[in-house]
Each structure stands twice: as structure tokens, then as C-alpha cells.
Amino acid sequence: MAHLKVTVPENSQNILGIVTINAPLEKVFEAYTKEDLFAIWWCRGNPMKVYYFDCKDGGSWHVAEQSEDGNEYEFTGCFHEVAKNRRIVQTFEFLGMPERGHVMLEKAEFVAIAEHRTEIHTHSTAMSQEDRDGMVASGMESGWRQSVEALGKLLESDN
């Protein structure tokens, strides 16, 4: 079963996470970088509208979650680096804020810890500590955990 550990350091703009999943690194990386797989798990497993998803250095993405409460929640970002089976560096922005510009810079590093077990080490940095705290207060961890569970459901059944 996929597992998420989140750390929110005091007096910091960072959110740190470790995802552990019982799937080979290559399959996990593919689930992050292939639009059809990404659309299955990323928005907590809820239906997702993909406006565009160009997962490459300099590419960008824009998606909308179709949530169970009937609302649509839009997210966007730019890919700074996509190093196959090693690392993704990107921005992340929730478009439901009253104003734009509350962007996070995120780095995800993919580590094979066994043949069929992968860890993803994430480091997200907000523009300010206030932005980071707002993200945490919004229920970010619960949504992230649901997405990790959906990723596990997608990938772990194959092992």
C-alpha cells in the first residue's frame, strides 16, 4: 500500500514529503509524466479535465479536478526539469485563490529502494511562510494522501 509522510518544518516556507509505493521506479515515474496515467490518480482519483500536459523541460500543465462536491478546482504549473526516472522540478499554483502569484516550487526525486519499491522525496517551497501555512490549513495533506492512495491503486495491483 502506498504511504505518505509529510513534514512541515517550523519557521520555514517548506513542505517535505516522502511517498513510498510498492511499484518499480520506472512505472512510478511514468505515472507522473504520462498524461493518461497522471489524469487517473493526481486529483485524489477524482475525474480530471486536462487542458494541457506537456511534461518535458520547459513544458507546462493545466488541469481541473472535478470534485465530489460538484465543484471544479484548477491547478497549473511549469516543468523546469524532467530527468527521466530521477527528478521532476516544477511549479504548482492553485487557481482558486483571490489573486494569482501564490506559486510553489516543487522538486520530486525518485529513488528505487528495492526492485518493486520506490520512494519519492518531495521538497516544496512556497513564496512565503504565510502561503505555506495557508496551503497546509487548506487540507493539503489529506488531498495529497488521497492522491497517493489513488496512485497506489493504479500501480500496486500490477505487482
Rank of each mutant, 00 (worst) to 15 (best):
R145T: 15
M104Y: 14
G58V: 08
V63H: 03
V6Y: 03
H121Y: 09
V50W: 01
G101Q: 05
K34R: 14
D131L: 09
E74H: 11
H3P: 00
I15C: 11
G17C: 09
R100I: 05
H80T: 09
W42Q: 13
R100L: 10
E68Q: 13
N71P: 00
F94I: 03
H116C: 07
R145W: 09
H123K: 12
E109P: 03
N22K: 15
Y73C: 01
G70F: 04
S128A: 08
K84A: 15
L155V: 01
F92I: 01
F38K: 13
E141N: 11
Y51A: 07
M48R: 05
E10C: 00
E10W: 01
R100C: 00
D54Q: 09
H62S: 10
I88R: 07
S157F: 03
G59N: 10
K5Y: 02
S67I: 01
M127C: 11
R145I: 02
A64L: 03
A31R: 07
E74A: 15
L16N: 12
D69S: 14
S12P: 07
S147W: 11
K27A: 12
S124V: 03
Q129Y: 02
G152Y: 11
Q13H: 14
L105S: 12
H3Y: 09
S67H: 11
Q66G: 02
R117P: 00
K56F: 05
E35G: 04
L25C: 08
P24T: 04
E35H: 07
H80R: 13
G96C: 04
C78S: 14
V103R: 11
E72N: 09
L95S: 01
K49F: 02
I18F: 02
A126V: 01
V103G: 05
L155A: 03
L37M: 08
G101E: 10
I40T: 05
P47N: 12
S12Y: 11
K27V: 02
A39S: 13
F110Q: 08
L95V: 01
E119I: 06
G96T: 00
I15N: 06
V8Q: 08
G101M: 08
A2F: 03
K153M: 09
A108T: 02
A2I: 04
T118H: 06
I113T: 14
M104Q: 14
G101I: 08
H123G: 00
N22G: 08
E30D: 14
S142R: 10
E156P: 05
S128I: 04
D133G: 05
R117E: 15
E26R: 11
V63C: 05
G77A: 12
G134V: 01
A23L: 07
